[in-house]
Design a protein around this nucleic acid. Structure first.
Length: 825
DNA sequence: GATCCTCGAGTTCA
DNA sequence: CTCGAGGATC
């Protein structure tokens, strides 16, 4: 095959792909390949055609601008063609652009008008004698569609011009777009009322403008910014682009206030960076910025190349969206057993990083998108960082794919995967017998906000667990330096036999695992393979320099220093379901000591604000497992110490009554009113326990309530819980004298939210200090928020605060306040 | 019973 | 950061 046939094949291929994409984009408002790919393919085609002029043809898509207009609307031939712009993707290309102008014009100060490039739909508005007469889409650049009726529905487009001095014929060009917030609101409404959900603001704008019924179009929240001119007759306009925009604004057109005049390539690049940083906080989507030589005389001198002016260029942001293929859909098991499907993607660059994984959240989301293995998908890194699959490109689905289904068994331990009634998540039922859950729970235990064991990364946890050295969190505190050294040696060893003989270890037979496992496992007969007691012989020759000893020493030291901890950290570290950072803190503050929390009957936990039945039961359930109690015993036996134990909070005192207890037990039919009645009629739990329904009725309870109570007490487990709770209540009340009064802080009862980056301290630090003054530090802004502390680059939370009229402090004010109240750094 | 608010849990990559 | 769901409140 000659080079030429290869090229001609490729050209044909490219032309077909591009034509297809172009048709979909312009006629059906669908994007079947992302812009970035389209641009890349177009460049490839142009390059090939330039290199092989004999294969070029005038009707190639590379010589057209956009697609053919659809036939539903009247055609409009533009008096002045609507051209597209050349693209720049790098600083270098921008400098080239400026250099070309500089070389031709030879002027001292090159001034440019820089503007955001809105991601919408370009249109041309025609005014004759100051009255709007026609509006058209760009179409293929030469002819577009008459969408005047729909454009008249857009409030910001003037029907008649304001002010005076406008030309007889004035054509204004600009972008119709849909503001993000309106797009969201519209979709929310559509979802609730079964309307058409829009894919993104750009498609929303395009689709809306091309509705045949202007009434439908009127419902869509469209807006407009002017950025240029078409035909102008019978009038003078200012000599620069920037002054023209100002003039357009005076005539009543919306002009973006982000437009700026800057000088030279450096000015352009600074503008680009500035807008790039503000991109996410803008009210609309942009896909780059546009630079135009400001003075019109210079523009004329520069002229045009085939499809674009030489005096303007679009500087695009790195693609936020990319296509790639789904190589597999795997299931990850989290600490709680939650089974999360994750798409393994063919690696692809998106917005500066290589993305290989994207969460698919849960089975419902997969079903909604209908993502299948082998699919080509569009991946996005939205405003935040986390990649997500936006949509599947249906046309590129290979034959014979099946809809994805949640597996029935756990990929790690083989246990059944089940879904609770009414819940969205599927869970592996293996609990701690599932290695994945065990590893995750150990990782959680060691994490920064829990026991904070530095240096114990996922990899090491994995090997420690696989090797059987660590089976539960308490085993971490029994780790020996030698075990870690051998572990590291085995991980790096090329020759297991040699290593084993050097260390004097018995080696598991080949095929019983990788090098590491063969070194670590010892034949224990029928019991299977077990970790052997590992040690490095005295005088062992380390054959590589300083191998691993540093790491092992550091880890042992980190584990050691984590022994001294707080109740809050330990409770959080245990990984009790529904007990996160803040619930752990509440438990620690209200009850003060571990023994109390370990043995308290669950209904009493409900006395703590923000703990309800679900959370209370979960704590009780955790503490009722012998294995968990054993683990706590082991931790304490191996030197874990809680340094902040104290007496229960005195505020509990008023809460601990027979009436509240009766409510908290969740006895059927026993409402708060009935609970109070019972508490008044009977002095204690013991007095109620063995009574008959008749006695309760005599005491004033309705018969059905009395019967329900007796029936409930008749169940042994309930009776036991009842007695235990009564005893615990008494015990706590007996401790009344030692209960702690909480010191009143200046921020008592206030809720504070931190946002943005603080320069002088980190977030956790600021949080701790505010809490020391009595404040509650919350994660989201609501009308109950007392004030918001905004650091630099504050985002949505600051907006929300402004929206709700919540007071906002800057960092200086916070620092001053902290200093005034004895919490200076 | 509905609504608002907060917490927990899960996730990516340099 | 976002979603889902638990808790508090009316």
């Amino acid at each position: 095959m000659t080079a030429n046939t290869t090229a001609s094949q490729r050209i044909a291929e490219l032309r077909q792909q591009l034509a297809e994409a172009s048709r979909a984009y312009h006629e059906r408002d669908e994007q079947i390949i992302p812009d970035i790919d389209y641009d890349r393919l177009m460049r490839e085609l142009q390059a090939l055609e330039a290199a092989h002029p004999e294969l070029d043809s005038t009707d190639s898509i590379s010589h057209q601008v956009g697609g053919k207009p659809s036939s539903r609307f009247a055609e409009v031939t533009h008096a002045v063609p609507m051209l597209s712009l050349g693209n720049a993707f790098s600083d270098e290309e921008v400098r080239d652009f400026v250099r070309r102008i500089d070389e031709r014009l030879r002027r001292p100060h090159l001034m440019f008008s820089a503007e955001p490039k809105l991601d919408g739909l370009a249109i041309n508005l025609r005014y004759e004698n100051g009255v709007f007469v026609q509006g058209a889409t760009r179409g293929d650049g030469a002819t577009g569609e008459d969408v005047s009726a729909n454009l008249r529905q857009i409030k910001v487009i003037p029907h008649t011009l304001e002010g005076q001095g406008w030309p007889e014929v004035l054509e204004v060009r600009g972008e119709v777009y849909m503001p993000r917030a309106d797009f969201e609101r519209y979709n929310e409404h559509a979802r609730l009322h079964g309307g058409k959900v829009l894919a993104n603001p750009r498609n929303g704008a395009a689709g809306s403008l091309r509705q045949l019924d202007p009434k439908v179009s009127a419902q869509r929240p469209l807006s407009f910014y002017a950025y240029g001119l078409g035909e102008v007759r019978g009038g003078e306009l200012p000599p620069t682009h920037s002054a023209t925009l100002a003039q357009l604004a005076r005539w009543g057109f919306p002009v973006s206030d982000l437009c700026q005049v800057v000088e030279g390539a450096d000015g352009l690049l600074a503008y680009y960076r500035d807008i790039g940083e503000r991109r996410d906080s803008l009210a609309f989507d942009i896909d780059g910025v546009v630079y135009k030589l400001d003075d019109r005389e210079g523009q004329q001198e520069m002229g045009f190349v085939a499809r674009a002016p030489r005096w303007a260029i679009a500087h695009k942001f790195p693609a936020q969206e990319q296509t790639t293929t789904v190589e597999a859909i795997e299931v990850q098991i989290g600490r709680t057993g939650a089974a999360t499907p994750v798409a393994r993607l063919k690696p692809v660059h998106v917005a500066g990083v290589v993305v290989t994984n994207a969460t698919l959240h849960n089975a419902d989301q997969i079903a909604r998108l209908d993502v299948r293995v082998g699919d080509t998908v569009i991946v996005r890194r939205a405003g935040d960082v986390i990649p997500e699959v936006v949509s599947v490109i249906a046309d590129r689905r290979p034959e014979g794919t099946q809809p994805w289904q949640m597996p029935h068994t756990c990929p790690v331990c083989g246990s059944e995967i089940v879904r609770e009634e009414g819940e969205a998540v599927w869970r592996c039922s293996g609990e701690l017998s599932c290695p994945a859950q065990r590893k995750e729970s150990i990782a959680h235990f060691a994490s920064r906000k829990a026991m904070d064991i530095d240096g114990l990364g996922d990899k090491y946890i994995e090997t420690l667990v696989d090797a059987g050295i660590v089976r539960g969190v308490a085993d971490l505190y029994a780790l020996q330096r030698d075990q870690l050294l051998v572990l590291k040696l085995a991980l790096d060893a090329a020759d297991p036999e040699a290593l084993a003989s050097q260390l004097g270890l018995h080696l598991a037979p080949e095929g019983s695992g990788d090098t590491l496992n063969r070194v670590l496992k010892l034949d224990a007969g029928d019991a299977g393979w077990r970790a052997q007691s590992l040690s490095v012989p005295a005088g062992f020759q380390w054959n590589t320099k300083k191998i691993a000893t540093k790491w092992a020493d550091n880890l042992i030291a980190a584990i050691d220093s984590s022994r001294s901890t707080t109740l809050e950290r330990l409770l959080f570290a245990l990984g009790i379901e529904h007990v996160g950072e803040s619930t752990a803190k509440a438990l620690s503050q209200w009850f003060g000591d571990l023994e109390l929390v370990r043995h308290l009957p669950w209904p009493l936990f409900k006395r703590v604000p923000d703990i309800g039945g679900e959370v209370a039961r979960s704590i009780g359930h955790f503490m009722a497992q012998p294995g968990n109690q054993q683990a706590i015993d082991d931790l304490l036996a191996r030197g874990v110490q809680i340094n902040d134990q104290h007496a229960p909070n005195a505020r509990l005192r008023g809460e601990l009554t027979l009436a509240t207890l009766l409510q908290d037990l969740e006895i059927p039919k026993v409402t708060p009113v009935r609970a109070r009645q019972l508490a008044e009629a009977f002095p204690s739990v013991e007095a109620i326990r063995d009574e008959s329904a008749h006695t309760f009725v005599t005491a004033g309870l309705p018969a059905d309530t009395a019967n329900a109570l007796v029936a409930w007490l008749d169940v042994d487990a309930n009776a036991a819980l009842f007695s235990a709770a009564g005893a615990a209540l008494q015990q706590l009340l007996v401790r009344t004298p030692e209960m702690q009064e909480q010191a009143a802080g200046p921020l008592d009862g206030q809720t504070v939210v931190l946002t943005g980056t603080l320069a002088q301290m980190n977030r956790d630090d600021a949080k701790a200090r505010l809490e020391a003054l009595g404040a509650k530090v919350a994660g989201s802004v609501s009308k109950k928020t007392s004030f918001v502390v905004a650091g630099s680059e504050a985002g949505s939370k600051l907006d929300k605060a402004n929206e709700l009229g919540v007071e906002v402090w800057d960092e200086a004010r916070l620092l001053a306040f902290l200093a005034d109240n004895g919490q200076a750094s």
